[in-house]
Computed example of a mutant assay.
Amino acid sequence: MKQLLIAQDLSSVGGVSLGIAVPVLASYQQRTTVLPTMLLSSHTGGFGLPIKVDISPFIQAFEEHWTTIPVQFTGAYLGYLGTVESIKMMGILLDKLSDDKTLTVIDPVMADHGTLYSGLTNGYVDELSMLCLAQADLILPNLTEAYLLADCNYQENPSETEIKKLLTRLLKKLNLKAVIITGVTNQKNQIGAVFLTKDGESGWVLKARRENHYFGTGDLLASCVVGELMSGHSLREALEFAVEVTWKAMSISDSEGLDQRLGVNFMSILPDINDRMEK
Rank of each mutant, 00 (worst) to 15 (best):
A249K: 04
G46R: 06
L148D: 10
G45I: 09
Y124Q: 04
C132R: 14
L97N: 14
V194E: 12
S27A: 15
H233A: 05
L220F: 13
P57W: 12
I269A: 06
L176I: 12
A208N: 15
G82N: 08
V22D: 07
G232A: 04
L166A: 07
L131C: 08
L174I: 05
T185M: 13
W204Q: 10
V13F: 08
A242V: 02
D254Y: 10
V184I: 14
I163H: 01
V243R: 00
K101F: 09
R169W: 04
N142K: 13
N153P: 11
G232E: 03
A249V: 06
T83Y: 11
H113V: 12
K165R: 08
I273D: 09
A21L: 05
T102W: 13
P36F: 08
L166Q: 07
A136F: 09
T185P: 02
V105Y: 04
S17R: 09
E63N: 06
L170S: 08
E237P: 01
Y77W: 13
V84I: 13
D99H: 02
D137K: 02
L174H: 11
G263W: 03
D107I: 01
E256G: 05
V24H: 07
G232M: 11
T185Y: 04
G257E: 06
T246G: 01
T33D: 04
L49Q: 15
N265M: 02
Y80I: 05
L40F: 07
S253G: 06
E228W: 01
M267K: 07
G183N: 10
I51A: 15
V243Y: 01
S251C: 10
G227L: 08
R261H: 06
M130E: 12
V264G: 06
I20T: 12
L229C: 04
L149K: 10
D137E: 10
A7P: 11
E201D: 09
V226D: 05
D54T: 00
Y117F: 15
E63Y: 00
D254C: 08
T121P: 07
I92C: 10
D9K: 05
Q60A: 11
E145L: 12
L171S: 06
K188Y: 14
I181H: 08
F58W: 14
G192L: 09
I106T: 07
K248M: 13
R276N: 10
K172A: 15
F62S: 08
V84G: 01
W66C: 07
Y147Q: 08
Q8F: 09
T83W: 05
A222Y: 00
Q260S: 14
G46H: 08
T33E: 07
L120D: 09
D272F: 12
Y147K: 02
F58P: 00
L35S: 05
C224V: 14
S202N: 10
T185H: 12
N212Q: 15
S159M: 03
L270I: 15
W247I: 01
V105K: 02
G46M: 09
I69N: 03
V205A: 06
A7Y: 11
Q29G: 07
G19V: 04
D54V: 01
V34N: 06
V264S: 12
G227I: 10
